[in-house]
Design a protein around this nucleic acid. Structure first.
Length: 452
RNA sequence: GUGGUUAUAGCUCAGUUGGUUAGAGCGUCGGAUUGUGGUUCCGAAGGUCGCGGGUUCGAGCCCCGUUUUCCACCCCA
């Protein structure tokens, strides 16, 4: 007999775990709806041509590819096989892949369904994504993203609205967070000012590690990318920025005054921060230049949310992308969006034990019986109670009392209706409150009242 | 993809320098208790020690390979 197992980086969820996960999903969904976002779904698999090249070279490697059906090796020549070039061979034997995120499929969706949607289009999407990553803490190969995006509107109000959503979701979930904010235009301005505009990616990736590896190592890494000493020297004041958001912006204005792009970024940042103040966003919003991660397509604001009380990667992230649909042939549509990492939020909630107590209770009352006649009798009562909106179960066989009662206990069902001959004759049931242990003989009407 | 780490009952874990028939707690099932769960007592089922190979008279323990777990790097939710 074989021992069953599941692929690495994937997980099963028990009913208890699902109750907790659904609490997260419904909280997030409720807030999304509060701002008028509408739900869409896209297929788990996309054509590889849609996915490839959208996440950089690293991303392509992390895509799960689906083997073509049937004789997938048939069209491959001996020469191609003997070359042993996996990348080349992949395109011959696989044309579909599992989605890597929700943003690219969404871009595809917008382009393909442009006749059915009007801008600004506000959608949310809660679905699993897959990455062929090596699993570790807070990192899975299958995990859920909860995306909200607005496309077809340049207004910075959209950024602010997303921040309000973050604020509200984490307020409802009772998680203390900080929202880090950066702007790609400011980063571009920095690269421009130090005279290394083409090296912006190398520079930002290195800056991103400032917290982790320290100033010296960052400088080493930048130098190793072939950036001149002079440029590195000019970068130093930026790396050492400190003080409040407005302090930092003042210092940046001085440094970036000759960069049109950089100044535009600062202006955007000031607008967003100003509006957050005006909207009384409770979550601390922090200008953080080291927040440089991000997919290649961010062009304006970049967001990241970190939990304050649990050490885990970011639990929400996103940003503005000016031309995401461009690769699919629809130019000039700007979008901004964020993604809540449901599985990391789940880990945070587990660690902090922040679930509401009621989230386990599903069934309100269980009917426990002594014989098949009593069972039949109970089915009628149950049917009636269900029309009243109660979640009701009838134990499917007249098993031993202990067995039936243990079942109620295990599922934490708060009420049990015990039905024997005496109860049937009186047209009543014995209602037991499982918490207090008290029980009394009641009519259907009294029962309805007692368990509401 | 790189480096380290882990794997023993459904779960959490013991298991001595390599030595007979691999243990515990929890859970499950049965009984004490034929109209009463959560407490208690008794009992039972359940393991090719991740898998494959090697060393040895003898391997859960040592060696090699492989898969898996967790951690760090790369990257990311």
């Amino acid at each position: 007999m074989q021992k069953p197992s599941i692929p690495k980086g994937t997980r099963d969820f028990t009913p208890g775990e699902m109750a907790n996960r659904n609490y997260i999903f419904s909280t997030i969904k409720d807030v999304f709806r509060l701002y008028g976002f509408q739900q869409i779904e896209t297929p788990a698999m996309e054509n590889l041509s849609t996915l490839m090249g959208k996440y950089g070279e690293e991303g392509d490697k992390l895509l799960f590819k689906i083997l073509n059906s049937g004789d997938f090796i048939g069209g491959v020549t001996e020469i191609e096989l003997s070359e042993r070039n996996s990348v080349k061979l992949t395109s011959k034997i696989s044309e579909k892949g599992l989605r890597y995120d929700l943003t690219v499929p969404f871009a595809r969706f917008v382009v393909q369904n442009r006749d059915k949607i009007s801008f600004p289009f506000k959608r949310y999407q809660i679905q699993p994504v897959w990455r062929a990553d090596r699993p570790q803490k807070g990192r899975y190969r299958e995990f859920y993203q909860c995306d909200v995006d607005v496309v077809g509107s340049d207004s910075l109000l959209n950024e602010v609205e997303l921040i309000q959503i973050v604020d509200e979701v984490y307020r409802r979930l009772n998680i203390r967070v900080v929202l880090k904010l950066n702007n790609r235009k400011i980063l571009s301005g920095i690269a421009e000012i130090i005279g290394e505009a083409e090296k912006i990616t190398d520079i930002t990736v290195a800056i991103d590690k400032l917290d982790k590896i320290g100033l010296e190592k960052v400088n080493e890494e930048i130098a190793s990318k072939g950036i001149t000493e002079e440029a590195i020297a000019r970068l130093q004041p930026i790396l050492k920025l400190s003080g409040s958001n407005s302090d930092k912006l003042e210092q940046l204005k001085e440094v970036l005054k000759d960069s049109k792009t950089g100044m535009k970024g600062i202006e955007e940042m000031e607008t967003i921060l100003g509006l957050c103040d005006a909207m009384q966003v409770a979550t601390p919003v922090e200008l953080d230049l080291t927040l440089a991660r991000g997919l290649n397509y961010y062009t304006g604001a970049i967001f990241e949310v970190k939990a304050l009380d649990v050490q885990i990667g970011s639990i929400t992230g996103g940003g503005r992308y000016d031309n995401l649909t461009g690769v699919f042939g629809l130019e000039g549509v700007s979008g901004v969006g964020i993604s809540f990492g449901a599985d990391r939020i789940y880990d945070v909630l587990n660690q902090l034990q922040l679930y509401p107590e009621t989230s386990l209770e599903q069934t309100r009352i269980l009917f426990v019986t002594f014989g098949w006649n009593e069972l039949k009798y109970s089915l009628n009562w149950a049917a009636h109670l269900r029309t009243e909106g109660f979640n009701v179960e009838v134990y499917p066989e007249p098993a031993k009392m202990k067995k039936q009662m243990s079942y109620a206990d295990g599922k934490q069902i708060p009420y049990v209706a015990i039905v024997g001959e005496n109860e049937m004759n009186e047209n009543k049931v014995m209602l037991k409150d499982m918490k207090s242990g008290e029980q009394r003989l009641v009519t259907l009407e009294e029962l309805t009242k007692a368990i509401s």
